[in-house]
């Protein structure tokens, strides 16, 4: 089967490497950029920055709560701290520290969260956080970003260094298609319409943007024209882009590597119900924890791959 994809790739890479490379570049551009990591420097790809700027990098040991507090302090002192660990330990483990010392106090801290979602793979449910977007988007002042591939993650990392305020940046572990341009400009809060369509809108974030691109081609083969919108910024949400598209297509699907409860789909549902009620189907994890397995197996078992987006799109269409 060869699909006529609107976006293609020649190379795969992990989004965490996009973060690591963007972080190094941000450090070269701005001497105020500093880094912290809780015994996961290799996993977070923060090693190049540490080597080049040893005086601006702090190993905290396995002590995430302390890392968030130190980051808030560094921000008070005028630094721009990038604090990195696995997404589970960057959110759930330290929620109150983020809430009080970072979000409520409006500190310019960048929480950099790798290995998010099911595609973390074999480590299993203890590490596969699927609730982080929800927790982070509920915090006032917090900006929440979940880029889709290496290039977009790198661009997002550079963009958040220039933005003043608390940010949650979510990325992942698996090797993933690089299908967005290397020279893209990342605009926080501005959704990117990747593919024009008329029948149904697919709002996707993170790794599932690629699955949405595949799903669009599969739907097109059946004569269904889907619009694909890349929601890299979950908060603030681009209401204009969302409403504009659904007013045209009349129905939508949300796709995310996250719980349905509290995720991107919930934010879109709120937008639609307030402004333009329309059928919305959810592709996400339905109130269960993950488990060990390969990323591909897990996306299939938990209903998060392109085939599931296609099915959801048809369900949405049938409800129009």
């Amino acid at each position: 089967m060869s699909l006529d994809l609107k976006f293609t790739y020649t190379e795969k890479k992990d989004t965490r490497s996009g973060f690591g490379d963007g972080f190094l570049e941000a450090g070269r551009k701005n001497p105020n950029v500093v880094g912290l990591c809780a015994d996961l420097i290799g996993s977070l790809k923060m090693g190049d920055f540490q080597k080049e700027f040893p005086d601006r990098f702090f190993q905290t040991g396995i002590a995430e709560a302390n890392m968030i507090g130190i980051s808030a302090g560094l921000a008070i002192g005028g630094k721009i701290p990038f604090a990195g660990t696995f997404a589970n330990f960057a959110t759930g483990r330290v929620y109150d520290q983020i809430r009080q010392s970072v979000a409520y106090s409006d500190k310019n801290v960048k929480i950099c969260a790798s290995h998010a979602g099911l595609t973390l793979g074999e480590d299993g449910a203890t590490h596969q956080i699927l609730e982080d977007l929800g927790m982070m988007k509920m915090l006032p002042h917090m900006t929440v970003i979940n880029p889709c591939d290496y290039n977009q993650t790198k661009a997002a990392t550079l963009a958040i260094a220039e933005y003043e305020g608390p940010v949650y940046l979510r990325f992942g572990r698996p090797s993933w298609p690089i299908f967005t341009p290397a020279d893209q400009k990342f605009e926080i809060g501005k959704a990117w319409k990747m593919i024009d369509g008329k029948d149904v809108t697919i709002f996707a974030t993170g790794h599932l943007v690629w699955e949405a691109v595949v799903a669009e081609a599969m739907l097109r083969e059946e004569g269904i024209y889907a619009e694909v919108i890349n929601i890299h910024t979950i908060k603030p949400l681009d209401l204009e882009a969302i409403l504009g598209s659904v007013k045209k297509t009349g129905c939508a699907v949300s796709a995310e590597e996250h719980q349905v409860n509290g995720g991107l789909g919930d934010s879109i549902a709120q937008t639609l119900s307030r402004n333009y009620p329309a059928p919305l189907e959810y592709v996400g994890v339905n109130d269960s924890f993950g488990e060990s397995g390969t990323p591909t197996q897990l996306l299939e078992k938990y209903g998060l791959n392109a085939e599931n987006i296609v099915k959801a799109a048809k369900r949405a269409l049938a409800r129009k």
């Binding site: 480590d123 299993g124 449910a125 203890t126 590490h127 488990e291 197996q297 897990l298």
Partner: peptide, 10 residues
Amino acid sequence: RKLNSRLQGH
């Protein structure tokens, strides 16, 4: 560490 196992990664 395989899919559907009782022997989870952790």
